[in-house]
Design a protein around this nucleic acid. Structure first.
Lengths: 343, 343
DNA sequence: CGAGTGAATGTTAGCGCAATCAATTTGTAT
DNA sequence: ATACAAATTGATTGCGCTAACATTCACTCG
C-alpha cells in the first residue's frame, strides 16, 4: 500500500496522501472525493461512505493551501490587534475566534504594537495570504495602509474606534466622547484637581484630549498628565500614581486602563489614603477584575465582546456574499460610566 | 495598462497583478521576478531595481498561497493555547510572535479552550494549512491528536508542561513539582489549614495533586478544595474565597492563578481580615500585577516569556534544517516561589 | 585564443486542489 | 416503452508560484 502511495510521485511531492490517492482507494474520481469532503450534499450516501473509509485508510489530510489557490477562498481571517497582553483586546480575540471557528474560518493573528509602521509591515504580509476577511484595530492608518486596504477588495471591519470615512465596515466607539463624559461626570461629583495617567497610544491620547476639552467646556478643573509606555501594567500605574501624588495635590486620578487604576489603588492603599474620600480613582475598560477589587473600581465600561461579536458577524455576512462591494457601514457600540466605590 | 493586465485572463483569475504581469513590465522572466523578491542576492543590482519599479507600477502583492503550494513552505507557524484571556498565555503569544515575525513567519492562532476534544478539532484544520511548525500548549493529547502529530512530520514544540515522552521538542515545567513545593513552603512557614481554589483544567489539577501529595509526605495540614470554571477571573476568586471563608476556618488560601488570588485578597480586605496574619494568600504565575498589589502578592513565578522565547527559537532552528528529524529534547525552565507580603 | 568558470537569467513542469462543463445514471410522467 | 428532468459522477484545465535544470554571458587563465 505504501508502495502504491509513493510510486511515480515526482521529487517535488510532499509524500503524504493526496486527493488522488484517496480517489484510487475509494474507486472514484478525485473530483468526487473533493465533493464528498467539501459539499457532501452533492454526493450519494454510498460514495460518501466509501470516501470516508478511504480517507481513514490513507490517513489523508486535506491540503487547504492547494484548495485555497484553486478556489480563491482561503477560509482565513486576519485579525490585527495592538497586543493580546491587554484584557480588552484579548477579549476581542476570544470573541472573534469564537464566532469564526464554528464557521470554518481560521485566524491569522497580527500584533501591530500600537504603531502605524508595524501595522503597515504586518498588513503587507497578511494580504499576501489572501485572507477572506480582515478585522483591524483602529482607524488611523498610514496612507499606504489605507490604499492597500482599498485596493485589496477584501471584506474589512475596523474596530475599537470611530471614523467619518471607514474603509469598509466599522464597529467601535468614540474615544473623545469617553474622555469628555468622564470629565463631566467627575466634575459633577465635585472633583477638581485631576491626575491623568495615559498609555502613549493614539486612542489613549484622544481620550485625554476629550477629557481636557470637557474641563475647558465646563470652565472648571485642573489636570496633570503622565504618559506611560505600552502595554499598560499595574506597576506603571503604581509608579506614576506615586509620582503624581508626591508632586501634586490631587482629588482624583483618571487612568487609560483598569490595570493602571489598580496600580494607583494599590499605591493609595499603601499610603493609607482613603479611597475615594481623599483620592478618587477612575479606570477604563471594565475588565473582569474591575468590579472585584476592593474598593470596587469605578470605570468606563467598553463591551469588547460585543465589538468582537458584531465585527465577526458583519464579516461573515459579507464573506458569504459572492460579489464584493463595500458597505460603508458604521456601528457605534457606545460606552457606559460605571460608578463603583472609587469615585 | 489596465487593458494589458486583464486581457486574456481566464475567468478563474482573481484579477490582481501576478508575477507574470510584473515580469512583463520589468522586461524579465517571471522566475527572475520571483528571485528578485525572495532571494535578491541571486539577482543583479540593475534587474533588482527594475523589478522593484515594476512592482510599484503594477501594485503587485505576492500570493503566498501559490508560493506555499509550489515550494512546500508555508512560512506559517500554528500556535495553540487554551485561551489568550489569561496573562500567562497572552505573554507566551506575545513572545512567540515577537521572535517569529522578524524571521518572516506568520502565526495561525488556535484556541483549544482547555479540552482535548477542541484541541483535536483545531489541530485537524491547522494541519490542513501545512504549517512549517507548531507550538502546542500541554502534553495531554488525545490518542488521535498524538498520532496526527507524529505522522505530520512538522517541527513541534509542546510547552507549559513536562512529559516523559514528548512528541518532538518540549519546553515547560512540572506542575506536580509546583504544587509540592508550595505545600512544603507554606508548611514551613507554619500554615496548616489550607483552602485551595483551582481552575478545572488538567494542569491546575496536577498542581493540586502535587500540593496534596506534599501535605501527605509531611504528614501535616488539612485542605478544602474548590474548583472554578475557566478562564479564571477575579470574581471567581472573590466568590470562592468568600465561600471557603464562610464555611471553614483557614490559615491560607492557595490559588491556581494570580487573578484568583487577587479576588481572594479583595474579599479578605472587604472583611477586614489582616493579610497575611489572619489569612495568607498564594497566587500562581507572577503576572505583572502580582508585585504591584497591596499587600504584594506571594506567588509562584513562571517565566512565560522564557518559555515562549525558547519554544520559538527551537522551532526556528528546526525549521531551518532541510531534513525533518525528531529531536526528542525536553527543557525544564522551572519555577520560583516568590515570597511577598501575603504569606 | 579557446577552454573553463561562475554569475545571471530563462524554460519547463509541476505543487494539490476545485471550477467548469460533459457524461452518465436514476427517477418520473406520459 | 419513451421522453424528459434531476441527481450523480467524471474529465479537463488552470489557480500563481517556485524547484530543477538549461542556457547565456562575462571573465579568467594557461
Amino acid at each position: 500500500m505504501d508502495d502504491s502511495r509513493t510510486r511515480g510521485r515526482s521529487s517535488r511531492s510532499t509524500g503524504s496522501a493526496r486527493l488522488t490517492d484517496v480517489a484510487r482507494v475509494a474507486g472514484v474520481a478525485p473530483m468526487t472525493v473533493s465533493r464528498a469532503l467539501n459539499r457532501p450534499e452533492l454526493v450519494s450516501e454510498s460514495t460518501r461512505l466509501r470516501v470516508q473509509r478511504a480517507v481513514l485508510e490513507t490517513g489523508y489530510v486535506p491540503n487547504r493551501v492547494a484548495g485555497a489557490l484553486a478556489s480563491s477562498r482561503s477560509r482565513l481571517v486576519a485579525l490585527l490587534v495592538p497586543t493580546v497582553a491587554h484584557s480588552l483586546f484579548a477579549e476581542v480575540v476570544q470573541t472573534v475566534m469564537g464566532v469564526l471557528a464554528p464557521q470554518g474560518y481560521q485566524v491569522l493573528l497580527g500584533l501591530t504594537g500600537y504603531t502605524p509602521e508595524q501595522e503597515e509591515t504586518i498588513l503587507e504580509t497578511v494580504l499576501s495570504r489572501r485572507p477572506d476577511g480582515i478585522v483591524l484595530t483602529g482607524c488611523c492608518h498610514s496612507a499606504l495602509t489605507r490604499q492597500r486596504l482599498l485596493s485589496a477588495k477584501v471584506p474589512l471591519v475596523e474596530i475599537w474606534d470611530m471614523s467619518d470615512d471607514p474603509v469598509d465596515m466599522l464597529v467601535g466607539f468614540s474615544h473623545e466622547a469617553v474622555g469628555r463624559a468622564v470629565a463631566e461626570h467627575l466634575l459633577a461629583r465635585g472633583y477638581r484637581r485631576f491626575g491623568l495617567i495615559s498609555a502613549d497610544d493614539s486612542r489613549g491620547r484622544r481620550r485625554v484630549a476629550g477629557f481636557v476639552a470637557g474641563l475647558e467646556s465646563a470652565g472648571k478643573g485642573t489636570y496633570q498628565l503622565r504618559e506611560v509606555g505600552t502595554p499598560s501594567s499595574m506597576p506603571w500605574g503604581r509608579d506614576m500614581g506615586a509620582e503624581l501624588l508626591d508632586s501634586h495635590s490631587l482629588d482624583a486620578i483618571v487612568c487609560s486602563s483598569d490595570i493602571l487604576a489598580l496600580g494607583v489603588l494599590a499605591e493609595a492603599q499603601s499610603r493609607g489614603l482613603a479611597v475615594p474620600d481623599r483620592l478618587a480613582i477612575m479606570g477604563f475598560g471594565d475588565s473582569s477584575y474591575a468590579g472585584a477589587s476592593f474598593p470596587a473600581l469605578s470605570t468606563v465600561r467598553i463591551d469588547g465582546a460585543a465589538i468582537g461579536l458584531r465585527a465577526a458577524e458583519h464579516l461573515l455576512q459579507r464573506m458569504a456574499q459572492p460579489t464584493f462591494e463595500r458597505a460603508g457601514r458604521s456601528q457605534d457600540v457606545g460606552f457606559e460610566i460605571i460608578d463603583r466605590d472609587t469615585t
